[in-house]
Structure formats: structure tokens, C-alpha cells
């Protein structure tokens, strides 16, 4: 056995560890990539929560960058991110569209009355069909759309000050949304 071949088992071991690291990292749950990234937001036709006569389609999302937030009253994390959504709505010009996912409309209305409404529109997706079009597998999920209606970012999990500062705010700024929110680096809540 030559000296070099002495190291072969070690090299193979390192290779396997390396592959395992990459492989398990790809499988990280919070990094499950949306199939929609850099693709147009799907076509849909939804009713508004506060006015079932009115429909809202993909066209209504065009023209301005927007944040589409999937939420429900049965989702505890949605309540914990609600404060941050309220802050974003108050401090910036970001258009926020809520998708009330697999929920009871009366419960949703009461929830918004109680905790405040950060949304410019709330869509009624009580049967979860819009959710399936969007590839939603839980709530909360948040999609960031550019003015052309393409998905530029998706967050599975809550919106919090850190996610806003590190992920959302830089992207909105890049898309040219005006930020009266000068407390970008502050931890407002």
C-alpha cells in the first residue's frame, strides 16, 4: 500500500459527509422553494371577503409591487405576525393583499375587526382553491410580486421585523416602492 492510498478511506468519508450535508440542506423545510419563483402569479378569480359581489383577479395585482399574504383565523402564527403586517401597512406604501385561506368568512371579519386590518384587499378562499393554484401548503405564507405580477420571493412562515429588514424591505426598495419607513433597521416591535 502506498502512502497516498492510505488517505483514500478518509477522502471517501469526507465525500459522503459533504454530499450528506448538501442533500439534507436541500431538504430543509423552510427552504422548500416555491415552484412559482420568477414565474407569473397564477390566473385566478376570487371573491372579496367584505363584498362577495366583487371579484378580484390577477389583473388587479398588476401595476404595483404587492405582498400577497395567506392567513387564517385558525393559524396561531398568523396572529403573531399580524402586528408586523400592521406596522408595514402603516409605515410603507406596500400594497398588501390578504388571502383568507380555508377559513370561515364571519370568523375572518371578526378577527380583522378585533386586531386591525393591514390589507388593501382580502380575498375569500374558503375552499382553498386559490391556495392550491399558489402552491400553498400551510399558513402563513407570503408572496412578493413585482409590478408585472411575477413572484420574486416567497416566505413560508411568519413575517417578523428581521424578515422584513433582511428579505422584504430590500426587495421592495429594489422594486421602487417608496418607504416612509425610515425605521428600517430599528426593531420596531
Amino acid at each position: 500500500m502506498s502512502r497516498a492510498s492510505f488517505y483514500i478511506p478518509l477522502a471517501v468519508f469526507a465525500l459522503i459527509m459533504g454530499l450528506g450535508y448538501i442533500g439534507f440542506d436541500l431538504g430543509a423545510r423552510n427552504q422548500l422553494p416555491s415552484a412559482l419563483i420568477n414565474k407569473p402569479f397564477p390566473e385566478f378569480n376570487a371573491r372579496l371577503l367584505d363584498d362577495a359581489e366583487q371579484t378580484f383577479t390577477r389583473d388587479n395585482l398588476l401595476g404595483k409591487p404587492a405582498m400577497v399574504n395567506v392567513w387564517a383565523t385558525w393559524c396561531p402564527t398568523c396572529l403573531s405576525e399580524h402586528g408586523e403586517l400592521m406596522r408595514i401597512a402603516a409605515a410603507t406604501d406596500v400594497v398588501i393583499v390578504g388571502v383568507n385561506y380555508k377559513d370561515r368568512p364571519d370568523a375572518a371579519k371578526q378577527w380583522l375587526a378585533q386586531y386591525g386590518n393591514p390589507y388593501d384587499w382580502v380575498l375569500d378562499d374558503r375552499d382553498g382553491l386559490l391556495g392550491i393554484e399558489m402552491g400553498v401548503y400551510g399558513a402563513p405564507e407570503t408572496f412578493l410580486l413585482n409590478a408585472q405580477g411575477e413572484v420574486v420571493y416567497k416566505r413560508v412562515g411568519d413575517i417578523n421585523p428581521r424578515i422584513w429588514r433582511d428579505e422584504l424591505q430590500p426587495r421592495f426598495q429594489q422594486l421602487g416602492v417608496s418607504m416612509s419607513d425610515d425605521s428600517a433597521d430599528s426593531t420596531a416591535r
Binding site: L32, P33, S34, A35, P42, I132, E133, M134, G135, Y137
Partner: peptide, 8 residues
């Protein structure tokens, strides 16, 4: 399904 939920 792949178009909506990806390779996963």
C-alpha cells in the same frame, strides 16, 4: 402538481 408545488 409540479407546476404548483415543485419537484418536492
Amino acid at each position: 402538481l409540479q407546476a404548483r408545488y415543485g419537484d418536492f
